[in-house]
């Protein structure tokens, strides 16, 4: 029915029967491809989700390597996994890392990869704040928010057809093309759906509280980010890819009300954070 309506619209715009045929065919093909793309992340195969996430994480690691500090990397992995154990996907092979970049940002990729920059760590005061940041990224993985972004990239350089091949296991990691990597980069630069960011914020407060932390760590990070200049190159990308911190705080106040106040006295563990995260 929808296709017929689109075809009719095409007929109005372009009067030849040939143009109508092509338009209809193109729409049908796009729908088929979208169906394949959804298989990649919509639960068809966790293995495929892992592979895609690994490729995506490797690309981010190509932009900035890990900080060469095994103690710090172990710390963020233990904290991150502890929080992830309180999510709906505790069994994923969660991996966390600190990127050696002065920029302020954090990333998640499908399958359980979470990366934060040392620039972001430098803005934090305690473990509850880091827990809030990691919980936000964990929520993106748990809710498969990347799927939404990939579906929206139809027609962009990340081809649905390529993802379809991925879903059908016809494309190994070794064969991943520049085109796929290019598409994943595009999503990293354009950001996820804004509604998904708000959902990740809401979930992050709860995950932090469940893990025994003061749930207001993430809001305190957002309040700090707000004081930074959006035009500063070190934070420009984060501001371009997320709703404004004020809008996020406002949404959290609307959703949380006083529901989490009872957990606000849970600890923040500032001393352990300071012992592991050497501030400049």
């Amino acid at each position: 029915m929808k296709r017929t309506l689109f075809a009719a619209a095409a007929l109005l715009l372009v009067s030849t029967a040939q143009a109508q045929f092509d338009f209809t065919k193109a729409l049908g093909t796009l729908a088929e491809k979208a169906g394949d793309a959804t298989k990649v992340l919509a639960g068809r195969s966790e293995d495929q989700e892992q592979k895609l996430g690994a490729q995506w994480a490797a690309t981010l690691l190509g932009a900035a390597p890990l900080v060469n500090d095994t103690g710090l990397q172990a710390y963020i992995n233990e904290l991150g996994l502890w929080i992830a154990l309180h999510s709906e996907r505790p069994g994923l092979p969660w991996r966390f890392g600190v990127l050696d970049s002065p920029n302020i940002n954090a990333f998640a990729t499908p399958g359980g990869y979470v990366l934060v920059t040392r620039g972001l760590l430098a803005q934090l005061s305690d473990e509850a704040e880091l827990a809030g940041v990691l919980a936000h990224e964990i929520a993106h993985v748990v809710k498969k928010h990347h799927l939404n972004a990939i579906l929206k990239s139809q027609g962009a350089s990340l081809g649905a057809e390529l993802l379809g091949k991925y879903a059908d296991n016809k494309l190994g990691v070794g064969e991943v093309t520049d085109k796929l990597v290019g598409g994943l980069k595009e999503i990293s630069l354009r950001g996820l759906d804004k509604g998904d960011e708000y959902q990740a914020d809401r979930m992050a407060l709860v995950l932090a509280a469940r893990s025994g932390y003061d749930p207001f760590g993430l809001p305190r990070v957002l309040q700090k980010l707000e004081t930074l200049n959006a035009r500063d190159s070190s934070i420009a990308l984060l501001f371009e890819t997320h709703p404004a911190p004020t809008a996020r705080l406002d949404a959290l106040e609307t959703a949380a009300g006083d529901k989490l106040d009872a957990f606000a006295r849970q600890p923040v563990f500032a001393e352990r954070f300071a012992a592991h995260v050497k501030q400049p």
Binding site: W82, S211, Y213, P215
Partner: peptide
């Protein structure tokens, strides 16, 4: 730490 798990429903 010690940090203990708490039961908290999603918002």
């Amino acid at each position: 730490a010690p940090a203990a798990s708490v039961d908290v429903p999603f918002l």
